[in-house]
């Protein structure tokens, strides 16, 4: 086993910049395998780590120890069911084109709505992208109207029309 002494900053996705925390090259073969192979099909039975151990030809203790280490280092965010987004209620993606010198204020204003659960700055003339989620379509529209009124900027409303997304996780090493 390696990397016990490596320092990792907690919470790579906390508000702020995306930071490269750890060169993945230093992972062991077992670590890469556990990260790559169990993005779906994590065993649903009383002793799932024993099942993984048998699949990988190692001991259950080593599987648990390795997953614990990956989790401690922030390389696995959690182990468990991945839930489909709630489709009860309504939501939309939306974007604003914000003058650079107003971006901080506008971003804070948009984030201040409880109905806004994602808010990203992106490199584009439409530089602020956010998702509004509420109990119904009317409430979503009210939030968009309030953002438009509060900022004086027209909101580009881009609701999902169809999903082509099959969520299988994605290969980390290929």
């Amino acid at each position: 086993m390696v990397i016990k002494n490596r320092q990792l900053t907690e919470g790579s996705t906390q508000a702020g910049r995306l930071v490269l925390l750890d060169p993945p090259a230093e992972l062991t073969a077992l670590e890469k395998c556990l990260l790559n192979e169990y993005q779906r099909g994590f065993p649903l039975c009383s002793s799932p780590y024993q099942v993984i151990a048998e699949q990988q030809g190692v001991t259950e203790e080593l599987v648990i120890e390795t997953l614990a280490s990956l989790q401690q280092r922030g390389l696995i965010s959690r182990i468990g069911p991945v839930f489909a987004p709630r489709r009860a209620g309504a939501s939309t993606l939306a974007a604003l084109s914000v003058p650079a010198d107003e971006l901080e204020n506008v971003a804070d204003f948009v984030s201040s709505f409880a109905e806004v659960n994602h808010n990203y700055e992106r490199e584009h003339s439409y530089n602020l992208w956010f998702v509004v989620t509420a109990s119904d379509e009317l409430h979503v529209q009210q939030v968009l109207d309030a953002i438009q009124a509060g900022t004086g900027l027209p909101v580009l409303k881009l609701p999902l029309e169809r999903s082509f997304y099959i969520d299988l996780g994605f290969p980390l090493w290929c």
């Binding site: 997953l67 468990g80 489909a84």
Partner: peptide, 29 residues
């Protein structure tokens, strides 16, 4: 518990059961 988790997966409430990688921490920045 196991039967209910399996049933929720069958109904699509649960998409998958995973050790979920932190892509950012793994260098997918």
């Amino acid at each position: 518990v196991l039967a209910r988790v399996a049933a929720m997966q069958e109904r699509g409430v649960i998409r998958r059961i995973a050790a979920v990688p932190n892509h950012y921490a793994l260098g997918y920045t």
